[in-house]
Design a protein around this nucleic acid. Structure first.
Lengths: 383, 383
DNA sequence: GTGAAAGCGCTAACAA
DNA sequence: TTGTTAGCGCTTTCAC
């Protein structure tokens, strides 16, 4: 029960706003406004200091403090200096949540990748972070584990967290894209990278998969391979298709028909690779040149070939796509296309920033990152 | 200018709270309360729906909607059903910012690691994410790039974002820990992993570095190595020191004095490793067994030894610590301690959850994750 | 230059 | 069972 400090009345008291963070009361009996003395100095639990704390400390209003902290113009230099001093003293850290809620931007980018443990994605994330943090953005990373359902859940979580944008590489499972379409329609900046969705009008960063596949084919032909085979990914996976298409196109240019090339689709699993390899080896005309759309399968196969005592590259040449470190360390060295994943990440982040900076003039762009053919022993049959 | 809808007065109008999200006015002239007709149906820009939108749609109060959405008890089933229907219809997604601000918890864990591109940390992060997302937590990852300054900045950013906890592996540069001490004092749950700080009373997850080093030493001795050498990290780096200590302790047990073992400190850089290797090889009694505290240096050295035509393990046996994939693929296979980084991540997240769940009864715990000696060809000098 | 007050979207204590 | 109100910490008119 609050009683009026002037007339002692108790039931005519109404709250009437705040003064310096304290409840102000109004007595309707004697028309008197007052503030009760601090009733609870009870909570010494060291909270984070707020703008209000600084304001009270100096006997000024929170809005002035806010302005000073935000470096707004029209503030007395002495006031500003005082405010900064006290802020320092109280170890004030702005509450980004409150800030975000107020200006409805979080300065956070949501990133969805299939699996952070794959070096390719780890590098992409690193590239994104570099650009992001240089521009004052934080990054929230989610993994879909190649599950469509997880991917959808991740998108929802990030949207609910009100990220300022979404950078996404779809899971292999993903064939329907409504979960992306909705936030996209609501104007959330979205950038696709690596595994993109062609049906949505977003900015995209893609690998030159077609060119990479073509380069591998050309190289294998030059090395004298004639019985070619491709171990590919799921048929619905765009990047796999593109690599295969590029490969086949080069062959076509050289007058080699596509049906002369074995193409096996898979989910990139090691046992699938080994099983296929066995079948190839048992066929009447085993391949003398193998292209694995995913470097991991190339390594699976190499280890198996070595165990079988089959010489690489003399009997079978083998090439992969991606992941440089392992390819460089295995023996013989694995010929691959280096993808520059860090650059892919950087580009994705840059496209997002472009869109954020100039939303009106923004037009979705597709940026292509060229791979680099790195020739190692696994394919060098000549010179 | 607002004029009273009853008496037409203009200067006796005062704002008087809100009704259904609309401004309510009070005319002091005729004592009439009113709400002006929606002045601006101008913004069809599809915003995210809010609780208020649902409430207005149904002519009920926002708190009822909130309660229904939060599955609180004491809500009419029919009302709840209606609310859920409309929520679905409007594609309502709760604004996590507002929620967080309101209950001052973000359900976000901040993670600071030196470098996501290192497979060890990528796995740790993955382990953290698994546990976190299973408990409804999001994860925000920052990289320090082994820079103390970046690490401090990261801590501040995460604290400002009001993460519910901090999981951190310090940079090699970090020797002062005040940036951790402050939030720790304010009660922010902090878990250290891998590279810990012993002076702060936090939960910790550590590798059994001592045991790992000991196991390597024992194994090398069994293989008949007698001239041992250690390529270590910075002397101030705890995990490096522990591995070395474990190694030396085993030797001591076998009556081998520590000064009979060459120990070189470094920053793990490849050229440092190669330089040291050259010196060792040129010494009067080159080592026949090398332990690299960091697997990367072991690989650097192996590649160099192979180029020099020095046989591994016959002439020199070599062992590393960590990173299984590369170690398995290089030839000869590299003997290492597998660290189970995914488990380390899981444990760190679990310790955080423990603290969150029962803050009163919480006592900082140190959890040790045992490594696993994986013996491969690089050290097998006997059967 | 500064302050009062509204508002961001939500939860929770209290009242009805 | 529901509504009213205050409050989370900040920014931003608008008024003085």
């Amino acid at each position: 029960m609050i009683e009026c400090v002037k007339c002692g009345q108790v039931d005519a008291i109404k709250r009437a706003g705040f003064v310096r963070g304290k409840q102000r009361f109004h007595c309707r009996h004697c028309s008197y406004h007052f503030v009760v003395a601090d009733p609870a100095p009870a909570k010494p639990a060291r909270r984070q200091a707020t703008i209000m704390d600084i304001a009270q400390h100096l006997g000024i209003s929170p809005s002035t403090v806010s302005r000073a902290l935000l470096n707004r113009y029209g503030i007395n230099e002495r006031t500003r200096a005082e405010i900064l001093r006290v802020a320092q003293e109280l170890d004030y850290q702005p509450n980004l949540l409150a800030q975000s809620l107020s200006n409805s931007e979080t300065h956070t980018i949501g990133v969805i990748i299939p699996d952070i443990e794959r070096p390719f994605f780890a590098s992409v994330v690193s590239g994104i972070q570099q650009v992001a943090s240089a521009s004052g953005y934080r990054v929230m990373v989610c993994q879909s584990n190649e599950s469509h359902q997880m991917e959808v859940a991740n998108v929802q979580a990030l949207v609910a967290s009100r990220v300022d944008g979404l950078l996404i590489c779809h899971s292999t499972e993903t064939t329907s894209f409504d979960h992306i379409r909705l936030p996209h329609r609501k104007g959330l900046p979205i950038v696709h990278f690596d595994r993109i969705c062609e049906d949505i009008d977003t900015s995209k960063v893609v690998q030159d998969d077609y060119g990479g596949g073509a380069a591998i084919a050309e190289h294998l032909l030059r090395q004298g391979c004639r019985q070619l085979a491709i171990f590919a990914g799921p048929p619905e996976l765009l990047i796999s298709r593109r690599r295969v298409e590029g490969f086949l196109s080069t062959l076509a240019d050289q007058g080699i028909a596509a049906d002369g090339v074995r193409v096996v689709h898979s989910h990139f699993k090691p046992d699938e690779a080994l099983h296929t390899l066995r079948e190839w080896l048992q066929s009447p005309a085993p391949p003398d040149g193998i292209f694995c759309v995913h470097y991991g399968n190339a390594i699976d196969m190499m280890l198996d070939l070595k165990q079988r005592g089959i010489r690489i590259p003399e009997e079978i040449a083998i090439a992969g796509f991606g992941e440089d470190r392992l390819a460089a360390v295995i023996e013989p060295g694995l010929t691959t296309i280096h993808q520059h994943p860090f650059q892919i990440g950087r580009q994705a982040a840059l496209l997002f920033l472009n869109q954020i900076m100039a939303p009106e003039s923004f037009v979705p762009t597709t940026h292509q990152v060229k791979g680099e053919l790195i020739v190692r022993q696994s394919t060098l049959r000549r010179g």
